[in-house]
C-alpha cells in the first residue's frame, strides 16, 4: 500500500521536474519576447551533446560537462537571436516558421556531424528500494534541481534589475522601452537565458536516456504543451502547468507507458485551451488581481 503511494508520488514529482526543466527556457522566451521557439528540442539536444563530449571524450566530471553544455547552448541561442530572431521580433508568425527551419537544419547537422548515436553516460548515484521497487537517486536530484531552478528564477525576477526589467517588458513593452529598458539587450539576454536553460535540461537528462539525433524529440511534445498550458507568465505558468500536466502524465505513464503519457497531456492541453486560452497563468493572474482589487475596494469603503 505504502509502496504504491510512494510510486505514484515519485512518478508525479519526476514528471513535474521533467516538464518544468523541459519548458522553463521556452516559457521565458515566450513570456518575455512573444517568440515561440520551435528549435527548443534542438537546443536541448545541443546541451546534451556538448555534455556528452565533455564527459565521454574529454573525461570531465558530469557536473562540469553539464555546466559547459549549458553555457555553450546559451551562446548558440545568442547567435540565433542576433542573426535571425532579431529581424522577426514584430513578426511572431514568421518567427515560428523561421525557428522551425532552424530546428530541422540543426537536427540534421547534429546527425551529420555526430552520427546515429553517441557513447552514453551512465546514471550516477545509484538506486534505492521501496517496497520491492527500485528508484533512482539521480532522478530525485533532478526534482531538487527543478525546484531550486524555480526558486532562483523567482528570486531573479523579483529582486534583480534584470528581473525587474523583464517583468516590465512582459507587462508592456512600449512603456518599458520609454523608461529606459533596453529592449534589444533584454531580448538578447532573454534568448540566451532561455537557450541556456534548454541546454541545461539536455545535459541533466543525458544519463537517463540514450543520445541519438532524436534526443530532442523526447522533450518536444512535453515542453511545447507545458508552455501552451502555462500561459504567458513563465514562472507561474510553468509551475502550474508542470503540476497539472504532471498529474496526468504520471498516471498515464504508470498505467500504460510514456507514449500514452504524451498523448494524454496533448489531449488535455487541447481541451484546456478551449476553456482557458491564456493558460493557467492568464487565469490565475486574473483571479489574483481581482481579489487584490476587492481588498482595495473594501479598504476604501471603510
Amino acid at each position: 500500500m505504502f509502496g504504491d503511494i510512494f510510486a505514484y508520488i515519485y512518478q508525479f514529482i519526476d514528471s513535474f521536474a521533467f516538464l518544468v526543466l523541459a519548458a522553463l527556457g521556452m516559457a521565458i522566451i515566450y513570456g518575455m519576447m512573444g517568440i515561440t521557439n520551435m528549435a527548443q528540442g534542438e537546443l536541448i539536444m545541443i546541451g546534451a551533446y556538448v555534455t556528452d563530449i565533455m564527459v565521454c571524450n574529454l573525461g570531465m566530471p558530469l557536473i562540469i560537462g553539464i555546466i559547459i553544455g549549458t553555457v555553450f547552448t546559451g551562446f548558440v541561442g545568442l547567435l540565433m537571436d542576433r542573426l535571425i530572431i532579431k529581424r522577426l521580433y514584430d513578426r511572431p508568425l514568421d518567427s515560428v516558421v523561421a525557428t522551425w527551419g532552424l530546428s530541422i537544419a540543426l537536427a540534421q547537422l547534429i546527425y551529420i556531424i555526430f552520427g546515429p548515436s553517441m557513447t552514453g553516460v551512465s546514471i550516477p548515484l545509484g538506486s534505492f528500494k521501496v517496497a520491492g521497487r527500485s528508484y533512482s537517486y539521480y532522478r530525485l536530484l533532478l526534482v531538487a534541481i527543478a525546484i531550486v531552478l524555480i526558486l532562483i528564477t523567482f528570486l531573479v525576477f523579483k529582486y534583480t534589475k534584470f528581473g525587474l526589467h523583464s517583468r516590465a517588458t512582459m507587462q508592456n513593452r512600449e512603456i518599458a522601452n520609454s523608461l529606459g529598458v533596453n529592449a534589444n539587450k533584454m531580448n538578447a539576454g532573454t534568448f540566451m537565458l532561455g537557450s541556456a536553460l534548454a541546454g541545461l535540461c539536455g545535459g541533466l537528462y543525458l544519463p537517463t536516456m540514450s543520445l541519438t539525433p532524436s534526443y530532442g524529440e523526447s522533450f518536444l511534445v512535453q515542453s511545447f504543451v507545458t508552455v501552451l498550458v502555462g500561459g504567458a507568465d513563465p514562472l507561474l505558468g510553468t509551475v502550474l502547468a508542470g503540476g497539472g500536466l504532471g498529474i496526468v502524465q504520471s498516471i498515464l505513464n504508470m498505467k500504460f507507458n510514456t507514449f500514452y503519457g504524451k498523448i494524454g497531456i496533448l489531449l488535455m492541453a487541447i481541451l484546456f485551451i478551449r476553456i482557458l486560452p491564456n493558460g493557467f497563468s492568464g487565469y490565475f493572474n486574473g483571479v489574483r488581481l481581482k481579489m487584490k482589487l476587492k481588498k482595495e475596494k473594501n479598504r476604501g469603503d471603510k
Binding site: A269, I273, R274, P277
Partner: peptide
Amino acid sequence: YFIFYGGVNEIFTGIITLC
C-alpha cells in the same frame, strides 16, 4: 473547434499541430 473557439493565439496552432 477546440483551437479557434477558445480564441487561442494563432501561433499556438503551430505547436498544437506539430504535437
